[in-house]
Each structure stands twice: as C-alpha cells, then as structure tokens.
C-alpha cells in the first residue's frame, strides 16, 4: 500500500483516513478557538484593572498583569442587591415566560396538526375592520377603550354569521400557521411603544408580569412553528386507540403526545429560554426600577466614562453560566430535538 493511499483512505466505514482525521480535527479545534477566544477575553477582562484595558492588550493573568477582583467586588458587594434584583427578575421572567409559551404554543401547534380549521375570510375582514374603527373611535373621538371594545365585540358576534353567509371563502391551517409565524417578523420597534401604552393603561408597567406576558407572546410563534413539525411526525395510531378507549383529548395530549415529543419540547424550550433570557429592547421599554433584567444592566455599564468593560464582563459571565449549565444538563435532548421534526418519520 502506498503512503498516499494509507493517508487518504479510511480503515473501515466508521473511521476516517489519517489525513481526513487531521483535517477534521484541525477544523474542529480551529473553530473551538474561534468560539472560546471571545469568552476567554471576557473572563480575563473581568479580572483587569481599567489601566490594563486602556493601555494596550495584556493577555495572560499573572504573567502580563496581576488579576484583580475589583470588578467582582463591585458587582457583588457594592451593587449587591442591584445585581441580585435584575438577576432574579431575569430568572423568573425567562422561566415563567418559557413555560407559558411552551404550554400555550404546543397546545396550539398540536391542535393545528390534528384538526382542520377553516376560519371564514369574511369574519377576519370584519374583525380587522371593527378593530380599526375601534382604534379611531378611541384615539380620535375620545371614546373610553373598554366601551369601544365591548361594542366592537358585540357587533362582531352579531355580524359574523351574516358576513359568513355572504362570503364563503375560508382559510386553511397553513394560513393560520403562517399568520402565527409572521408575528415573529414584526420588528420590536414597531410594537414597543403601543405595548408600553397598553401596559401603562392597565397599570402593569415595570412589573415582571408585563415582561412575562410580552415574552410569552413574542416567543409563541417559534414554539408553534417548531412544535407543529414535531407533532406532525408523531404517528396518530396511539392517539386513535386511546381515543377509542375513551380518553379525552386533554388526557391524550398531556398523557401521550407531550411525552413523545419530549426531545422537541426540550430543544424548543431551551431556544425560547435563551431568547427570553437575552432580550434587551423590550425590557428596556417595559422596565425601569423593579423589573429591570440583566441585559439592560449589561448595556447600562456603558456610561460617560466609557464602557466599564470589567463590570460588563462580570455580568456577561454571570449571564452565560446558568445557561451553559442547563445546556450540559439537557444536551442529549438537544441533539434529537433540534430536528424541527421535518426529517423524522
């Protein structure tokens, strides 16, 4: 066997040729460095004094510079509760909103994957029309919003049937699914101010409730979309036999379907959790003192004296650690779960 051949051909189907292995591991290690270096830099920056940052790069603690815990002390001791409060807020908001989004989203996704919906186009147009009229009435003519809402709802219920008789076109599940997904397209800047006014009207500004409700909604589309693909690939036989045995839909859903979709739930849940945990723009709008979350605190370290890199680094590390821990815990699910269902079955 020539050397070239031995280098380029694998010994068996499940292994790689020596040359291939070098290339593959080389690529993996290279990318590991790309991933790790910024994290390393954050970690050592959290141990630097301002002068270490401003006077040029130093790379190795104890060799290039003497690490100092001043930033950690500032975040944990000086700020103390001012760090703890946003941290708790972030944890509560991210966990609760993820749980809610997962529950509501997978119910909707399951429903869309098993039933045929056919909302009348006419009802939808009517709904939009009444909504617009309501806004104009409230904004333009000073009608109290709850009166407008009640009137609009009553009109809708009255007219929906009539409208449905005159216009028979209807939409399908695909349209509903896409409508839900399209909510994710909505840029937060479009919605932020009206949402602020909404929460202000009901007196919920700067509460965790407001953030939880908002995050649940903005992440719903992702849950519905990803979970829909999972449910579609789960065979219906089990459910049908359970149904024949007299199990209710609720029992089937919670008892049979959800456990089967566990990898998908975990993977989608983790993704949604990360999105909620890291969200910045809406948190900035909706929170000030009490409900402030970690990303706002991170961004806030940019002050007139320049970004306080050392404090910022500590906060970023504090934000990454729990998520890494969670990922390690759940990692075997993620592999299976990130499939989006589409290739299963």
């Amino acid at each position: 066997m020539s050397v070239l051949k031995r280098l380029t051909e694998p010994k068996s189907l499940d292994s790689m040729s020596p040359l291939g292995a070098v290339l593959v591991y080389g690529g993996l290690i290279l990318w590991s460095m790309v991933v790790l270096f910024p994290l390393y830099w954050i970690a050592i920056t959290s141990l630097k004094l301002p002068i270490h940052v401003s006077a040029g790069p130093v790379y190795l603690p104890f060799v290039d510079f003497l690490p100092d815990l001043h930033a950690w002390r500032y975040i944990f001791v000086d700020l103390g509760n001012d760090t703890l409060r946003p941290y708790l807020n972030s944890i509560v908001v991210a966990l609760v909103s993820t749980a809610l989004a997962m529950l509501i989203g997978s119910m909707a996704a399951y429903s869309l994957s098993r039933l045929e919906f056919a909302p009348r186009l006419a009802s939808i147009l009517l709904f939009l029309l009444l909504g617009a009229v309501m806004i104009v009435a409230v904004a333009g003519f000073g009608v109290p919003w709850w009166i407008a809402a009640v009137v609009a709802l009553a009109l809708f219920l009255l007219l929906a049937r009539a409208a449905g008789r005159t216009m028979r076109a209807s939409l399908g599940n695909g349209d509903i699914l896409f409508w839900i997904i399209s909510q994710r397209i909505l840029p937060p800047v479009v919605a932020a101010l009206p949402i602020y006014v909404m929460f202000q009207t009901v007196g919920l500004l700067d509460t965790r409730t407001a953030l939880i409700a908002t995050y649940t909604t903005v992440n719903l589309p992702i849950v519905v979309w990803l979970m829909y693909d999972f449910f579609v690939t789960i065979p219906k036989d089990l459910e049908e036999s359970a149904s024949l045995d007299g199990a209710s839909r609720f029992a089937i859903f919670f008892g049979i379907v959800l456990p089967l979709a566990r990898p998908g739930l975990v993977a989608t849940g983790l993704l949604v959790l990360i999105l909620a945990w890291n969200e910045y723009l809406l948190a900035l709008f909706l929170s000030s003192a009490n409900a402030q979350t970690m990303p706002v605190l991170v961004a806030a370290q940019n002050a007139t004296r320049g970004p306080q890199w050392w404090y910022m680094s500590v906060l970023i590390l504090l934000m990454i650690l729990p998520v890494i821990f969670l990922t390690l815990l759940l990692q075997r699910f993620i592999a299976k779960g990130m499939l989006l269902g589409a290739v299963k079955g």
Partner: peptide
C-alpha cells in the same frame, strides 16, 4: 455543546465583546 455556547450570550454582550 461548545459550538452552541455563542448563542447563549446576550446580543448586547456580544456587541460589547
């Protein structure tokens, strides 16, 4: 797991990093 990590960093943090 390692390659997954950057997704967990808050975008604001990444921007500053």
């Amino acid at each position: 797991v390692l390659f997954f990590v950057p997704l967990m960093v808050t975008p604001v943090g990444i921007a500053y990093t």
